[in-house]
Write a protein that binds this DNA or RNA. Structure first.
Lengths: 208, 208
DNA sequence: CCGAGTAACTTACTACGAGTAAGTTCCAGC
DNA sequence: GCTGGAACTTACTCGTAGTAAGTTACTCGG
């Protein structure tokens, strides 16, 4: 009976426990209804607590949303980074990274909803955090790209940036598309196709 | 003295004229402050008209935003499509399309702000319109990709979709990056790099 | 010129959600 | 048991989306 709905005899808890409880509820509700569609009153009611308490702990709606973001982002980033690092060479790393990305999103659909809504916050203070996440990813990609270049060659940083941004954008859009598509191709198929599309071009970079 | 601020002796106009006037103001204000940062009262005040009139003409805030979107989207789509169609072969078409895209966005920065905020509306009825825009682009890209394939070969529609989605995502993210970067590379450079990155891979598609 | 009829427009609201001020209740340690 | 602080609440303010109901100005037939 200890399901998601909380039982009445809920008393005071220490701050850390409450914060966790609030965060979990927020993650769930943001995931279901999006940022706009979620009101602080909703979250408060779900936790069985009053609104000002949430404000005391998280400062603002953005603050709460950011906290959700940070957690999910960390998980996703770690997953992908691990897959990339575990690969024996650049070619495999590329595929492994894509695969890890699409698989994670398949396995954590509600996490992804939050992260997508993240993109929605072009305005607001959440935008900065959003950019940080993406910057981390792009840094990872850029590192991979550079790994793939012969050591002696001069590196055109603009080109590396362009490539990294492109890959980041492509994977994001593909992820969104897959959640919406009626019968999306498997993570393996998408990762493979992407890999095929990009691999040759990455070599071109190196010989330019 | 007929600057952007309107002179007091502003009287009744017929509906079409007012709609245009409202749309222009909305486009400007949305472009400056984003969707969230713009209130209907702001727009009303700017036009020198009362809020309910805007509601009568555009139905809702989303409706007004959508109307802005539709116009800008149309311009952008036409520009890119023209460039693509004018190219003598697939390779040039790809480059020309990219170039037209990035140039347009350089030349219409406020238009782009609106289109970026567009992305922000994952929630709300604007999302549908957004998807339509993107679908149009993706259709254009998919057509180009198919043009590039030998006629006899069987076409894997999933792969074409994946590639088209990737390109769409890449160009969007690059556009956003360029507006934020301190010293973004020229449209030519970005278009060329993208072209280099993708061209080989598109051939791979055909021989798979 | 003149009185409808209607399109253009306004005033004055409601509803709801973010954020806050000022408490009240419960538990720890003395 | 009493006091101090952390956990928590009630009861607001303020801003903005959206609306109901009315008012003003143009127009067209007589």
């Amino acid at each position: 009976m200890t399901s998601t709905t909380e039982q009445p005899p809920k008393r005071r808890r220490d701050r850390a426990a409450r914060e966790r409880e609030i965060l979990e509820a927020a993650e769930r509700i943001f995931g279901e209804r999006g940022y706009q569609g979620t009101s602080m009153d909703d979250v408060a009611a779900q936790v069985g607590v009053s609104k000002p308490l949430i404000y005391q702990y998280y400062g603002s709606k953005d603050g709460l949303f950011l906290a959700c973001l940070a957690r999910l982002r960390g998980q996703l980033l770690d997953t992908v980074a691990d897959a990339v690092m575990a690969a024996p060479n650049a070619e495999d790393a590329l595929y492994a990274g894509f695969l890890a990305w699409f698989r994670f999103l398949d396995e954590h659909p509600q996490a992804w909803s939050v992260l997508v809504d993240e993109g929605m916050l072009s305005a607001g203070p959440a935008a900065e955090a959003t950019d940080e996440v993406r910057a981390a990813f792009i840094e990872l990609i850029a590192t991979m790209v550079r790994m793939n270049l012969p050591a002696g060659r001069p590196v055109d940083d603009d080109e590396v940036q362009i490539v990294a941004q492109s890959i980041s954008g492509a994977t994001e859009r593909l992820a969104i598309w897959r959640t919406r598509a009626a019968a999306p191709p498997s993570p393996e198929k998408v990762a493979r196709t992407l890999q095929d599309l990009l691999w040759q071009g990455l070599h071109t970079l190196k010989t330019t």
